[in-house]
Every structure is written in C-alpha cells, then in structure tokens.
Amino acid sequence: MASREPLTRQDVTDVAELALLNLSDDDLDRYTGQLDAVFDLASKLDQFDVSEVPPTSHPFGLVNVFRADSPPSSVGIDGTDDNVRQEALASGPDVEDNQFKVPPALGESP
C-alpha cells in the first residue's frame, strides 16, 4: 500500500481558517486524529491500479442537462412570482433601500 504523509495539526488549522471555524486546542487535536483516520480509510483505494480509468466527477452517465433561455421570471420562495423582492429581503437579517445590509465588506470579492 502506498504510504501517505500523516495529516498535521497545521493542516487542520489552515483548513479551519479558510472555513471560518474557530477551533480550540482540544478540538484541533481531536479532529486531527479523526480526520487522519478518515484519510487512512480513503487511502486504501490506492492499492487499485486506476491508471487506465478516466477520472469520474459524477457517479451517473448523465451529460448536457440544459434549460432554454426564456422566458425570464422571478419566482419566489413559495413558487409564485408575487412580490419576490419583499419575500427575499424579509429573509435577510437587515435591510436598507431594498438591499441586504451586511457588516462592512472591505475591498472587492476575492
């Protein structure tokens, strides 16, 4: 079986940061161990020779699922097009000038 670099505490810290998760030291130790076990299990697949198998992104053979480009519609959460904006805004935490009001977003999106 191919050997695998063990998962480090730093790996888990980095991923937690990207996912905006605040993990305590205890959490980090526990998750590093648990995730390493998951990787161990997955790495058992390494024993198969898949050099001739094309990568699979989806488990079924379906391709080219399309919809037509018309007609435009705004459909609300309840499936009707009645007052979609008000319905959508009502589900946000705060609203101003018919826009969602959020904590300051600095700069452009990544």
Binding site: R67, P71, P72, S73, S74, V75, G76, I77, V84, R85, A88, L89, D97, N98, Q99, F100
Partner: peptide, 16 residues
Amino acid sequence: PAKNEFGGEPNTNIHP
C-alpha cells in the same frame, strides 16, 4: 430563470 439585465431596481431580478 431570473432576468439578466443591467440597471434594474435593486434585488428585483432574483430567484431562489
């Protein structure tokens, strides 16, 4: 199926 349009009133061309 929401409309692709520039300059509409805020949050009118939206969909779940």
